[in-house]
Design a protein around this nucleic acid. Structure first.
Lengths: 195, 195
DNA sequence: AATTTACGAAACGGTATCGTATCGAAATAC
DNA sequence: GTATTTCGATACGATACCGTTTCGTAAATT
């Protein structure tokens, strides 16, 4: 069986493939989806254009694959109290959301949402779902410790806080630091049920 | 004095000017900032390219002017109770934020935020500030009626709810309708201080 | 060693768009 | 009636980028 899997001819280069994906994300962060051109991606990756066109039919397909391949391990913090856990989650979210890549990815998703929803779907599946689940676990633990009321809906809180962070991409808080602002929002959302 | 203001030669056409701005917004809504080309704007407006280039140096300048000229009167509702007022505000926000123009405007603002912040500034000044102020008035009235606690920060609530609505552009609520979702978020944010 | 497939630089035909120039006609002031 | 400025259709030179083709070289299998 393994003999059948052996391919005649020169094998595809894994290094080239990885370089292409990394170059794609780098340029997406720097100049955004529309401004990226295949030739620039190739140059950044140190490959030929034909090497890219052998793998992908279009820029859209390439970018979708690059996002899909973003490897981001979600660590579920367990500091023993709600705010310790949430601080860790927020810190992680800040590093990603507020980055140039995060910004341009979001812009791309919004702009293309009506014509091409795959970017939103991948972002949801690869980035948001795991964090949503981690967040829910943190809130369930907090409930068990009686730090918040049992009827708090973790998914709703997560979606609201995601919206809050998204908003700060465009309009950064003016009177507080980003961290203080996010904490005040969390307070407002969670304190409604605080014992 | 008025004689000095009289210009020799053919006056600029106000109709052409308005057509250009309207065509700009229409195409922005339909295809987004980057995909718009001057020739298409001219065709949609029914003017010549030279007519546009006489007024604007670049597409960016044109789009900034078009956004600046969006005339959107903010009506401050006064139904006598908090939820009546808020329903009216949310309804108005929905019509704008969830529109194709709203979506592409937001995408453009996010994508260009680091290189060209004028779009965000104009959006803030022309769209958000008036609504923020209207929202603050509505919440102050609610405080006077003892419908919410006095320490609620109207600006913080507004910013959070703006974030919530922005988020729904990418990830529409799945289990509830948009209106129900927004109401639940408002409940969470305001109910924390309900008497 | 022969064959097969991939790689990458370079060239290419084709299309798209920018921004300006031209020019006859129009709309004003004098 | 003359002068001035704008309008808009058209053309233009220039640049940008796409996606494919060519071809010598490399990396594998047979």
């Amino acid at each position: 069986m393994s003999e059948i899997n052996k391919k005649l001819g020169r094998p595809r280069s894994v290094e080239s493939h990885q370089s292409i994906l990394q170059a794609t994300l780098a340029l997406l962060a720097e100049i955004g989806f529309d401004a990226m051109i295949i030739e620039a991606i190739a140059a950044r990756a140190g490959v030929g254009k034909t090497t890219i066109y052998r793998r992908y039919v279009s820029k859209e397909e390439l970018v979708a694959d690059a996002i899909e391949n973003m490897r981001e391990e979600v660590v579920i913090p367990n500091t023993g109290n709600l705010w310790g856990d949430i601080d860790a989650l927020v810190e992680n979210a800040a590093q990603i959301t507020l980055s140039p890549l995060g910004r341009q990815t979001v812009a791309m998703i919004i702009s293309s949402a009506s014509s091409n929803s795959q970017f939103a779907q991948i972002y949801w599946a690869k980035y948001l779902q795991p964090r949503r689940q981690a967040f829910a676990i943190v809130l369930e633990r907090a409930k068990a410790r009686n730090e918040i009321q049992p009827e708090i809906d973790p998914d709703l809180v997560f979606d609201m806080m995601s919206g809050v962070m998204l908003y700060t991409l465009i309009f950064p808080p003016t009177t507080d630091s980003w961290e203080v602002h996010v904490r005040r929002c969390l307070n407002l959302v969670l304190q409604s049920a605080a014992v």
